[in-house]
Each structure stands twice: as structure tokens, then as C-alpha cells.
Design a protein around this nucleic acid. Structure first.
Length: 449
DNA sequence: TTTTGAGTTGTTCGA
DNA sequence: GTCGAACAACTCAAA
């Protein structure tokens, strides 16, 4: 059993199937190349999850074999004589190519399941038998399609594992064990989420409030299954329905990526690849470091850099700012998010970036451009979120903190804010940036004008 | 085949 | 301050 982004025993269809054999060896391959590309938070979170899996197996009298990558070498070496190799199938092109290479090396197909998703690809289709390009149509089918039954729990008696002691990866995990603090389990997070989910409709867009599930990294690493989350939450209230809808988005983007591997690197609507993005390294750097002069944008970018996570509403605002205000290629923002987010997953990240950029499958009119100040006033009215991440503005009044460049000089001075010194002046004027972007998009769609 | 209705998350302007 | 309409035209799904 080769665990990848399904680092759990419970509700894991591949594990359930693997443990029907007389013996099964649980294996994780730690890929240096991926660890190096991950920011510190994701790296930590991943190693925590591997330790958790190992602990769980040990509590069941088994162990986990931890191998150094690349998997194309490690798996054939350890599993050349295995009757079968069990995995939950990968969604992204990199993982799928890797799996194909492993399969070729052992001269047998991998035995695969879809334990990372609620709905198996190919099971949620339009009347014509195609995958919908519109979310709502996908959702209508998804929500009335019974999910596959929960798999049987795997038998702990059958497992072995623990080879690979002395690998660099095993050392790394062991070091981590000593350093890590107590980890709240994914199931604790899910249980406490049930106390909040009925308010999801009201609270989800308020970044100062703890109104989201915080389950994104668990779902990414597979420490909890989306199938289980769906079962536990249900759709009985507007809040629950809205939250479960997000699981459907997750499935939808995964299904889309399987059909369109190129959506990671080019516009789903190809005409938008003609947009003439600005080459603006300084603007990009200001955005990355949270120094754009737009407080809500800077707050989000600093939350991301410092914690590896950003509130969903603020992800939209900061992404929109990069694309629509700075007119910088969405792919550069996608790459930055992907390197830092603890929940970074290519299908979700690229799908959502394309949604914001308006280059994707959605129906959003391209003139729907977020105004970072309006968004800030609407969703962080008291400035609590901004003050948390942009402390140099914390003494500004609620009404002033969203747009310090519009604040009266006396009020700025008494708050200790010197624009261009203690806090940047705004990088662009939103109104003119908006007009510039509308023109650039129009040019791309109608090259003649 | 044609038609119809709708499309995650918005902004702005004028009544 | 509130509210509704306009903001392009197009694509997609379903009738």
C-alpha cells in the first residue's frame, strides 16, 4: 500500500482493499524535490501527517516503511515481487506520469481507487454524458448522486512494514517527531467545525472570524476523507449545504484537471492566453511581501507568508488584485500560492486562479473586478483582520484603515502612519488599473480593436 | 435543430 | 441611504 495524499487508515478505499491480502506493507515515499519546493508550513504539516500515519499504524501493531524518492526507483525496488500495489489515484499530470512510470517498471498496473475525492471522475455527468463546464450544472448532478459506500476498515492484523529504516526520509520523519508539538487530529477539527457550520453562510466571508472549517490541509494530505466530511456534515441547513457545495467544487476542479491537464499552465479559454500581461517584477515583489499599500491585500499576503494559510475571501481579493489591478499573469500568482499554502493542490489552485482571472470555465463577466477597498469595508468592516496582520496601521480608525491614502493628514499623523515610510503608498490607482485591465482583456478577445 | 435560460463570491450609477 | 438596473456578449446545458 503506497500512501500519497491519503495519509489515513480510516475511510481509505485503497487501504481497505490492500488489507484484504494476507500481508500488506504500508509505504510512504518522501520526495525531496517536492519537500524542497514546499514552504516551511506545508513541509511541517506534511511531515506531521506522515508521523501521524506511522503512529496510527504502530498503535495497530504495524509500522510504516518510509523511503527516499524518487518513487519511480523506490517503489519498484521494494515492490517488485508484490502481488499488487495499491494506491489512491492521482489527479495531476505529474503524479499520473509518475504512476505510469512505476507501473511500467514493475510490469503491472497499479490497483487504484479514488479515495481523495467524494465522487469518482466520470460519475457526475451532464445529460449528454460529458463533464459540465458550468459549476451549477455539475453541482445539481453531484448533490443527488449517491456517493460510493464507505469502505470497510482495514484489518490491522495483516500489516507489516517498517523496512527502509535508515533512509534519509525516515531520519527526517524521526527528527520531526521530536520537534513537533501536539497536533490536533483532523477529526477533532471536523467535530469542532460542526459547532460552526450552521453559521457558515453568514461567517464564511468574514476573515476576522473563525468561520471556515480549517480542513483544507487535512483534505489535501488525506488525513481526513472528503467522503467522511460529507457524511458527517450533510446538507440539512443552508450553512451545511453551502459548505458541502465547496466539496463539490473540489471534485469538479479535480475532474476538470483529469480532462484538461493543460489548465495548470494555460487558460482554459485559450483566447485569454493572448492577454498582454505586464512584466512588473517590482509589483510582483510588493504583492508577495504584502507591501502594495492596499491594507486588505497586504494583510492577506502576510497571513499567507507567516502561516501558510489565507482566508478564502482574502484569497480572492489578493488574487484579483494581482491580476486585475497589477495586470500580472495569473500563473505567477498561482505559483506563489502553490509554494506557500499548506493546502496547495494544483487542480484547486489553478482552477480557482483561473476563476479569479476570468480565464476559466466560469461565467463571471470579465468586468466583475473586485474593488479592494469595497471588499475590505464590506467583509472586514471593523478592520480587525487588517490590524492583526498589518499592525503599523492598527491605530487608524475603522473608517480610515481600509484606504489610508484617503485619510486626513492629521488622522494619519495621530495614528503614527507616514505613507511611503511606515506604510507604502498605494501601488496603483484602482480606478485606472481597472480601466487598463478591461482594455487588455478586450484586446485579447478582439485582437482587431 | 433551435431556443431558452442561466451563469459562486461584483461595482457603479442614478433614481 | 437604499434599491434596481446596467455592465457585453457568450457559452453551456437542457428543454
Amino acid at each position: 500500500m503506497w500512501f500519497r495524499h491519503d495519509l489515513r487508515l480510516e475511510d481509505n478505499p485503497a487501504w481497505s482493499r490492500a488489507t484484504q491480502a494476507d500481508t500488506v506493507e504500508p509505504v510512504v515515499v518522501v520526495e525531496d524535490t517536492l519537500l524542497d519546493a514546499a514552504g516551511p508550513h506545508r513541509r511541517t504539516r506534511y511531515l506531521d501527517a506522515v508521523v501521524d500515519l506511522q503512529d496510527t499504524l504502530r498503535a495497530n501493531g504495524a509500522d510504516l516503511t518510509i523511503l527516499d524518492g524518487p518513487a519511480q526507483i523506490a517503489i519498484p525496488r521494494i515492490a517488485a515481487n508484490a502481488d499488487s500495489i495499491h494506491v489512491n489515484e492521482a489527479v495531476g499530470p505529474w503524479g499520473r506520469r509518475r504512476d505510469a512510470e512505476v507501473s511500467a517498471a514493475v510490469a503491472k498496473p497499479l490497483t487504484s481507487e479514488w479515495g481523495t475525492l467524494v465522487a469518482e471522475p466520470g460519475t457526475v455527468l451532464t445529460g449528454k454524458g460529458t463533464l459540465s463546464r458550468v459549476f451549477t450544472a455539475f453541482w445539481k448532478v453531484w448533490v443527488r448522486t449517491p456517493p460510493p459506500p464507505l469502505p470497510e476498515a482495514g484489518s490491522a492484523e495483516a500489516v507489516s512494514g517498517g523496512a527502509g529504516i535508515g533512509s534519509r526520509a525516515a531520519e527526517l520523519v524521526e527528527q520531526h517527531r521530536r520537534q513537533r508539538s501536539t497536533i490536533a487530529s483532523a477529526h477533532d477539527r471536523l467535530a469542532s467545525w460542526l459547532d460552526h457550520v450552521d453559521r457558515y453562510d453568514d461567517d464564511r466571508d468574514r476573515p476576522a472570524i473563525d468561520g471556515t472549517s480549517q480542513l483544507s490541509a487535512d483534505l489535501r494530505l488525506g488525513t481526513i476523507s472528503p467522503r467522511r466530511v460529507l457524511d458527517v456534515v450533510g446538507t440539512s441547513t443552508p450553512g451545511r449545504d453551502g459548505f458541502v457545495r465547496q466539496l463539490a467544487w473540489r471534485d469538479w476542479y479535480a475532474h476538470l484537471l483529469l480532462e484538461m491537464p493543460h489548465m495548470l499552465s494555460s487558460a482554459i479559454r485559450p483566447e485569454y492566453d493572448a492577454i498582454e500581461w505586464l512584466d512588473d517584477p517590482e509589483g510582483l515583489e510588493a504583492w508577495k511581501s504584502g507591501q502594495t499599500g492596499y491594507p486588505i491585500v497586504d494583510a492577506g499576503m502576510r497571513q499567507l507568508a507567516q502561516t501558510g494559510w489565507m482566508h478564502n475571501r482574502v484569497r480572492m481579493i489578493t488574487a484579483s488584485f494581482l491580476v486585475k489591478d497589477l495586470l500580472i499573469d495569473w500563473r505567477l500568482g498561482e505559483r506563489w500560492f502553490r509554494s506557500l499554502l499548506i493546502d496547495a493542490e494544483p487542480s484547486q489552485n489553478a482552477g480557482n486562479w483561473q476563476w479569479v482571472a476570468g480565464t476559466g470555465t466560469d461565467a463571471a463577466p470579465y468586468f466583475r473586478i473586485f474593488n479592494p477597498v469595497s471588499q475590505s469595508r464590506r467583509f472586514d468592516p471593523s478592520g480587525t483582520y487588517i490590524r492583526r496582520w498589518v499592525p503599523e496601521l492598527s491605530a487608524l480608525a475603522d473608517r480610515d484603515i481600509h484606504a489610508p491614502w484617503e485619510t486626513a493628514p492629521l488622522d494619519l499623523a495621530s495614528a503614527g502612519v507616514i505613507l511611503g515610510d511606515t506604510y507604502p503608498a498605494p501601488l496603483v490607482d484602482h480606478a485606472s488599473a481597472r480601466a487598463r485591465t478591461l482594455e487588455a482583456y478586450a484586446r485579447a478577445v478582439k485582437p482587431s480593436t
